[in-house]
């Protein structure tokens, strides 16, 4: 009973404190509309001139057998990681995802849809510094309509 009450109280206070904040209000429209990876990076990070960093791990299948569901895990080895940006260069809208991290995380996993074979670009911002890494992702070319 006690537990139930506690749970109820917890949910109630949570509900009162945080009205589901769905609107961040800073959706980078132009970055997602950009057709070129460099333009997208410029829009979202302010620059496309980013030095490669060797502390970024990209975990993705070398050949995507189902290009509509490509699981990509990005791990940043940099302390103070603030954001992770994932760009699928071969796609019509290359910018796939931009994550802002506040809780001390270093990794995110997402599933992407790939239009065609291309480079997967990852940019990590850590302590104000940008680091880039890339991986070639191949799309199996059977049954592509």
């Amino acid at each position: 009973m006690l537990r139930r009450n506690l749970l109820k109280a917890g949910v109630a206070t949570a509900g009162a404190m945080l009205v589901p904040r769905t609107v961040i209000g800073a959706y980078p429209v132009d970055a997602f509309l950009a057709k070129q990876p460099a333009d997208a990076l410029r829009e979202v990070l302010g620059t496309a001139d980013i030095a490669p960093g060797d502390a970024i791990e990209i975990d993705a299948p070398p050949i995507a057998s189902d290009p509509d569901l490509v699981t990509v895990r990005v791990r940043s080895g940099y302390a103070g990681t603030e954001s992770i940006t994932i760009v699928a260069s071969g796609n019509e809208s290359p910018l796939a995802a931009h994550y802002r991290l506040y809780g001390g995380q270093h990794a995110v996993t997402t599933r992407l849809r790939l239009d065609e074979t291309g480079e997967l670009l990852v940019v990590v911002k850590a302590d104000g510094q940008l680091h880039a890494a890339s991986r070639q992702l191949r799309v199996a070319n059977f049954c592509r309509a």
Partner: peptide
């Protein structure tokens, strides 16, 4: 947006290159 104990830990902006039925996984202290 994902929050932990009322504090935002992750904000994501997604475009059209994220798959159908999107999946997100991460770890937070």
């Amino acid at each position: 947006i994902v929050s932990r104990n009322g504090r935002v830990v992750l904000e994501a902006f997604w475009g059209k290159s994220v798959s159908r039925n999107p999946y997100l996984a991460f770890e937070v202290p």
